[in-house]
Design a protein around this nucleic acid. Structure first.
Lengths: 339, 339
DNA sequence: GCCCCAAAGTGAACCGGTTCAGCGCGCGCT
DNA sequence: AGCGCGCGCTGAACCGGTTCACTTTGGGGC
């Protein structure tokens, strides 16, 4: 059992002091270029790696960011959103040797407790705040803790915390104008969890555009994002006296469930009802017909968010920023309604 | 900006030495019961939390387990398997204040590099090895590194590493006997990635049971688990001269894609073709008809795996163990074939 | 030739825990 | 009364880095 190689081992072999080796390895001034090269080569040869605990203890970074997911595991599993976001984050964090600490909790209270513990234990250097709500209770806690955080979502409602957001409102305008151009006059929306900021923003946009376009009828029904509720709501909508000619879903899973319900009821897609998903993933391509969807580059979103949290820790001034807006990917599930 | 409260602060307030306080807080002998209670109360009052770096540095645990996912993010996102497994793991780890470090990488080589780095940096106390392959190259590396690991999968092919496995072979027997009892004589299987142990085990079981049952025809076609390939293979199978009357898919996503293709081709489920999914999730319930599936308690699997890795670190002797076998959940996608 | 300064490197303190050797003291035993 | 033992606690070393105050060395300017 060979012992770990420490900075002292490298120093001894190089005939230098620990301090000099530390300077050399970290690109700090205080050693000559030739010495630095020699030390770097030696460290590589000897298979030296910094002990993350020692590094963290001596005032530097913990070398980790935290992400807490406060949704039931059943919902989490099926939404491609999170994994895409996570893999984006990690590709941005890799360059700075930062790891991702993940925790799944049942609710916001537990989430807040995790933040307190992580920060008290100096286990993370910062966290990502996800699923932002209106008047989110987590925001003041993070501010009070002075725990560096980057909010995934917005705009607004994250106090003094920096955030990155995607413009859902204008995407909703795009969606509605597209449907209106197809001559849809009766549009329903199967929305996500009320209280979540992006849900609210979409609802507001939906209502105001519907009004502006002078639609015959429009409504939003709230769900918990689960396919079960998506199916249930769709069933209700399609069996009403005068059903909508188009339905906009707040995620892809519910849209897929919606198509299924339509099949089951003998309602044809898209001739009887047009269906539209929010967030594009392979799920949208496996249904028949494939789903028209609002497509956002979630992975790039993750990259952006992580890069900005790193910048924040480097002392740069980081403010709210808007990601590139979503695109509309038209597939077979939307068409002009037959009269 | 109030400084962190350290063990020295607690010691001063209690009028004790750092050592005594450490003993008191960790349930070690060396202090009287009354002193211990006093210290515990005081620590709570002062809001003391152990600095995880200091703890890790002084020989104790890093307080984290690592999980590396070496699948493309696109596949990961959609398979509920991983999130269920993760949330199970975490519920078992919570009691011992152990965090989960997550990393998504493109391939096994990168995965191995992560293990090496994590262990060299003493960032984790152990790792979970997932998606076990035949003659898995990661196994000898983990053994050589002496990095505590728990293999999710088996039986066999994980050398001296302990593992937890679910009996896929006997589940396959159950599936095939069920289909045979329904009078299916032509059964196709849309398999996962060849080389992965569970894929191979299922293939072997599939072949041997098909043989034993004296089926008229049976075949396995390999895929990469993606819905695209699932759809493509299904299309090919259903358009052949004498199509199968039943198709068994190696995951739920492909089965859902399969149902979609059947709809698209005007093939009725289950009267023209029976469809069966492996791993049960909400996905199986949103199709029409809902899918008959092999159901495994993935979350419990995660709990078991994490609990055993903890036990391993506590010096307990941990050997290979088998989880409770999968159940067959019969829904609407399987029936007796019409002649 | 002398002075001064910057570059290169040293040695020790420090981060916040754990752990081990040692010490004083009260108590039981004979 | 004297001895020994073990409980309860102390003080210091240690983990492996970072950082700071300080020393040595070499070179340029005059």
């Amino acid at each position: 059992m060979t012992r770990r190689v420490t900075i002292a081992d490298v120093a001894k072999k190089a005939g230098l002091s620990k301090g000099a080796v530390s300077y050399a390895l970290n690109g700090q001034p205080g050693v000559s270029e030739s010495t630095r090269q020699r030390v770097l080569r030696l460290a590589l040869e000897m298979g030296w790696h910094p002990n993350s605990a020692a590094k963290a203890l001596s005032g530097a970074r913990a070398g980790a960011f935290g992400l807490v997911l406060a949704r039931p595991a059943s919902t989490l599993g099926i939404e491609p959103f999170f994994m895409k976001l996570i893999s984006g984050m990690e590709s941005a964090m890799a360059s700075s040797q930062t790891a991702l600490l993940l925790q799944v909790v049942p609710d916001h209270a537990a989430e807040i407790a995790v933040y307190r513990r992580w920060w008290a234990e100096r286990r993370v250097d910062g966290v990502f705040l996800i699923d932002l709500c209106k008047d989110d209770p987590r925001v003041p806690v993070l501010e009070e803790l002075r725990l560096p955080a980057m909010v995934v979502g917005g705009p607004g409602h994250h106090g003094a915390l920096p955030g990155v957001w995607i413009d859902d409102a204008s995407a909703m305008v795009m969606v509605m104008e597209y449907l209106a151009a197809l001559r849809h006059r009766r549009i329903a929306r199967v929305g996500g969890v009320p209280g979540m900021l992006h849900t609210e923003l979409r609802t507001e946009a939906f209502d105001s555009v519907a009004d502006r376009l002078g639609l015959e009828w429009s409504t939003t029904i709230s769900t918990d994002y689960s396919p079960e509720q998506g199916a249930q709501v769709t069933r209700r909508l399609l069996s009403s006296g005068s059903p909508p000619t188009a339905i906009v879903y707040d995620n892809d899973v519910m849209a897929v469930a919606g198509v299924s319900v339509a099949h089951e009821m003998g309602v044809r897609v898209p001739s009887d009802v047009s269906i539209m998903a929010w967030d594009d993933s392979v799920l949208c391509e496996i249904t028949h017909p494939p789903l028209t969807a609002v497509s956002r580059d979630i992975s790039a979103y993750g990259v952006q968010v992580a890069a900005r949290l790193l910048a924040l820790l480097n002392g740069e001034v980081v403010t709210e920023v808007e990601e590139t807006p979503p695109r509309l990917v038209v597939r077979g599930s939307t068409a002009r309604p037959v009269d």
